[in-house]
Amino acid sequence: MRLLLRQVGHHYADLPVLEDISLDVAQGETVAIIGPSGCGKSTLLNLVGGLLPLQQGSIETLGAPPPGCLNPLTFVFQDFALLPWRDVAGNVALALEHHDLSRVERDARIQDVLALCGLSDFAKALPKQLSGGMRQRVGIARAIAVRPAVLLMDEPLSALDAQTRELLMEDLLAIWGRERTTTLYVTHNLAEAVRLADRVMVLSRRPGKVKTIIGIPIPVLERGKPQHAAALAALQEDLWQSIKIEAQVADREMLGEAQHG
């Protein structure tokens, strides 16, 4: 399923947050969205996912969702958003229970995604018994259980330590390799963006506009290889240079706003 954004804009009260965002995301493509704090990255994701009402422009999907898709636009949240009173299997089940699935089908889907995310042995564990990385695996398992057409990932690895992040990035690549989902991936982490995305969309400081869109020419599955490290580092440096000044200004602006209430 393709994703088409045309001249999307958004404001909170009098404060413009996004302006004139246009983007085409191809079927199976991963586009990372980066930009300074407060530039509207998460707002854009919420608009695409229908969690915020669209004020300007249009957001459309093109094409049929994959077979068995129960929730075409599916989020993976930064804070995992797991129900603490449900065990791992129960949290995944939450996304399926209100759909017309037989018990057998539902259980099969749950077992399948738990196995895919390395959680089979933790099906009965409560979220509080899991590490941050495992919790996010549950969030990812819950998302792919509905066989989404588009994954909307809002800084999914930012609450995790560096080692766990590395491991989860590899897991994500494996999952995307199998599921072929179209993905919008919001992140602050430039290394994550160049490692995971096919293209990186850079937003300017608030109100966020498309500053540039950079393609990553190295095939995703080869980016872990040492021979590509220098090229990836150079791309990361390019991205940093493209947002550095704006990030500094945005930081000062946010500090000023905080001081003036």
Binding site: L70, N71, F75, F77, A81, L83, W85, L94, E97, H98
Partner: peptide, 23 residues
């Protein structure tokens, strides 16, 4: 965030009240 998560998976109001808000 839990309510938003439930909405994002398409749960209706009765389900959200029963499965998220009440517990």
């Amino acid at each position: 965030n839990l309510i938003r998560m439930a909405q994002s998976f398409g749960l209706g109001m009765p389900d959200i009240l029963r499965k998220v808000v009440w517990p």
